[in-house]
Amino acid sequence: MSAEPERARPLAPGEEPLWDALVEEAGSTPFFASREWVDRIARAYGGSVRLVGLFRGDELAAGVALPVRRRAGIPIATAPYLLPYLPLVAREERPEAIRPLLRFLARTYPLLSLLLPPGSDDLRAFRQEAWETAFRYTLRIDLRDATAESLLDRMEKSQRRRARRAEEEGAVVRSSSNADEHCRLVLASYQRQGKRFPISEEEERGLIRWVLESGRGRVFELHRDGRTAATFLIGLDGKRAYSLESGVDWEIGRGGESAHLLVRALAELAAEGTPEFDFLGVNHPSISRFKESFGGTLARYHAAAPPRPLWVRLLLRLRGAPAGLEIEGEGAAGR
């Protein structure tokens, strides 16, 4: 154990490379820990990224990239849309080591929640600091040696039948760089379900363009009769591919499009060497059945939030906001 004093504080301007190095060395989901990604998402909500670190001398031992925005003067640092993981990245696994960071976060951000990716099972430090924790779930598919046929073989029977039928009826899958078409279908899907899309259409369009241009993700489209019937945005880092968002045109769709689209997209990613695919959540009963039909492996992860001061709990109650760990419609609970 080092004798250097530990100190939690925000990273100063110019210290960003320390964070990048920490994520590269110790981040289990580098995609969602990258400061550019968190900043981009935070900006869609009128906020920005705040890097908070635990320093041992000059060394950044642990930290978190928070999407911080303000509402009525209160800093909010919960995981919004497209941040299904909000990880705490640490070089060392000794739970005692992160306690000063947890205390700093609890003091500074009265409304904060983290989403710790699969593999972070040792939550003793969180419990010692009286943080509330809860399980979340996702499905991961092993893509090593996967082909379209092997993915279909693993699939639940009726879903497989629908996916094959879509293909037989002439549905074609291809990579796309058309951010506008993707946005149109995603927004239409939300509208059809009677749900409000969490960010503005303009922000969404800008975000998707940036994802595609920066090489952080790819859009796969399914075409039927010359029109786009379904679309998937898949995020990529060196470790796996992530199901970020999808949309379906229900006027064109006859069933099986999403399954066929995903099988073809995953087969292409597997052929390029992507080892794993993460559905980023099977936490909502209405959408988990579709994802489970692919026959992946269930992985458990955690949501964690510090004890909320009384005034925060009262404020949430006054606004009719649920007192759960995450704000409704954001984070992982709805995915």
């Binding site: 003793r124 924790t133 809860a134 779930y137 988990s288």
Partner: peptide
């Protein structure tokens, strides 16, 4: 028993322990 989602969906509170 890893998958406790059915309990959360039915309104149960699930507290992680070790």
């Amino acid at each position: 028993l890893v998958d406790l989602r059915a309990l959360s969906w039915a309104g149960w509170r699930v507290e992680p322990r070790v």
